[in-house]
Design a protein around this nucleic acid. Sequence first.
DNA 1: TTAATTATTGCAACCGATTGCAATTTTTTT
DNA 2: AAAAAAATTGCAATCGGTTGCAATAATTAA
Lengths: 346, 346
Amino acid sequence: MAENKEITIYDIARYLKISATTVSRGLKNHPTINKNTCKKIAEAARILGYRSNTFASSLLSKTTHTLGVIVPRISSYFMSYVLAGMEDAASRQGYTLIINHSNESTEKEKVNALTMFNKRVDGLLISVAYDTRNIDHILPFFKKNIPVIFFDRTWSHPESMSVEIDNIKAGYEVTKHLLEQGFRKIAHLTGNLLRNVYADRLTGYKDALREYRIPYDEKKLFIGPLSENAGTQLAEKMIAMKVKDRPDAVFAANDTSAVYCMLKLKEAGFRIPGDIGFAGFNNDPISQVVTPHLTTVQYPGYQMGETAVNNLINHLKGITELHAIPKIILRAELMIRASSLKKKTL
Amino acid sequence: MAENKEITIYDIARYLKISATTVSRGLKNHPTINKNTCKKIAEAARILGYRSNTFASSLLSKTTHTLGVIVPRISSYFMSYVLAGMEDAASRQGYTLIINHSNESTEKEKVNALTMFNKRVDGLLISVAYDTRNIDHILPFFKKNIPVIFFDRTWSHPESMSVEIDNIKAGYEVTKHLLEQGFRKIAHLTGNLLRNVYADRLTGYKDALREYRIPYDEKKLFIGPLSENAGTQLAEKMIAMKVKDRPDAVFAANDTSAVYCMLKLKEAGFRIPGDIGFAGFNNDPISQVVTPHLTTVQYPGYQMGETAVNNLINHLKGITELHAIPKIILRAELMIRASSLKKKTL
DNA sequence: TTAATTATTGCAACCGATTGCAATTTTTTT
DNA sequence: AAAAAAATTGCAATCGGTTGCAATAATTAA
């Protein structure tokens, strides 16, 4: 069988005894082509099993209808929702996603960026790795006027747009809530302060303390990878502390570390929230499964992905200008649950 | 600045006063090109900021170095690990992934398959949607000799390969473990039996019952979407049952439904595992956070993704033949935890 | 020193779709 | 019925890299 022979517009042209030009135009219903001819062309394409050769047209148009996505980690609850939102938005508009993850390594991030650059994505969506210190590897995109959108872990750049939540506000609200509940020695477990998400939450935390006239105590700030282990270790440190030094609450910058810290403390006999209150971040499934349920911040991952992609595509279509909107803030919501409710009421 | 001008091999040729042919060959260190010339070409490419135009070469080679991935849902713990494994394996070998999700809809799956087909991926990796009933939409790939690998939720096809775990064995082991612990009225909460993963686990469940000479009771089989809600609803049904009809254990085909069923029963005053034993599937993070911890099956997602991609690429490179290996079975491991330990020991 | 090898390099056609402009056909106007 | 306007269609060049084959240059053998 000739099943393997690819059908081109020339085959259709020969079949209908017309020119390839007309076929090319007919296939996209170009207004100058007779409606009837268009119909015949579409029909012939169907019969012959034609599929457009995207390379040939990309070669000419220099456009791929492909967006590159670089995330620190695919396998995270939050990020997988971002990707789901991106995928839905992209395919709704006829775009395809190329997804890479840096695995939190700046080196891999650089390689990924280069790959995307060489694959000539029409635009780039990126959330930077844990300890990325500069965006030299993104500069080539700006130079070539390829639009870049940062999301979640952002990086400010005059030609780019960021999509994020108001981390300062979220950090403030979490901390304020803990303060309202009567906690006064609140520890903050967070990640690399180079990252906006962590730096901003810390700022919010400090803001709330200031409001309550509680001096900020550096000894209550714990910086680490926010892993299960990081949570467990903080618990161990706390257990080893003298009572007067021991925090009476923990605000962790993600749920994983919060939960594992909680579990370890519970195991050691501490009551939550009676002895120690807890709040996390992200609203991962574990936050609603752990006992007591974890107070956290609902992070709109799906919506973040959707928003980022829609804005990128609007820019590509010339509907909007990226640099005109340096930042889009999505709504994040404090989810108050038992882990922080010392007073029984709100 | 001429920053925006793309550099082509012709620019390099002009710059070095040699032919484009030589540049093309030199860039890939073709043996007939003088080593020294190669070096000069590479240097010039660097200086001028050349990047290869993949379309132009794909147009000729009919190869994209791109793999298509269709998953039912990106935002699932298990699947996000599969994707991570795929991404690592693919980028290690210089391949790029295009990822789509069907959102458990066969219709979207069809659209996705068409997109991948038109984007001319070199190979396809797919895990089918919840209620896909045929693979007509995949047939075009087979016709064009584009290799297809099914993973997790597979579909047997003579030219294809499947990567999965031994779900029958896993189902058998979970059930046998519950039986060994003294449970005798084990309910099974699962998904659409059209899907191998659910059908096979059920088979294993029946095998274990048979071994213990316990008649299979259809009334103990609950089929649904395996969502949080499905778990809660099963609990409600169980609460409403007469004692003699009530299962003394639940084997759920995923952790989410198991956990939510457990939580609801706990809330209603049932003791786990004293009154009702529990086992789930997947080893999601929630399984280790819920109290008591959930017995489950460790599902090697990352490895599954890696294996699928490596095999696909090996086929593409001509190292192996896909259809020679119809199936690859990965190791899954029963994780025994408190939710199923009625006898205090193993 | 010349012929025979071997190493390098370049010509020109090709992959498949697109597009400006000219050519042809059809329709409308006068 | 002829001229003008509008609707269709096709020619030919182009996008950038690849490759078979011929041409030229450099080495080696005779």
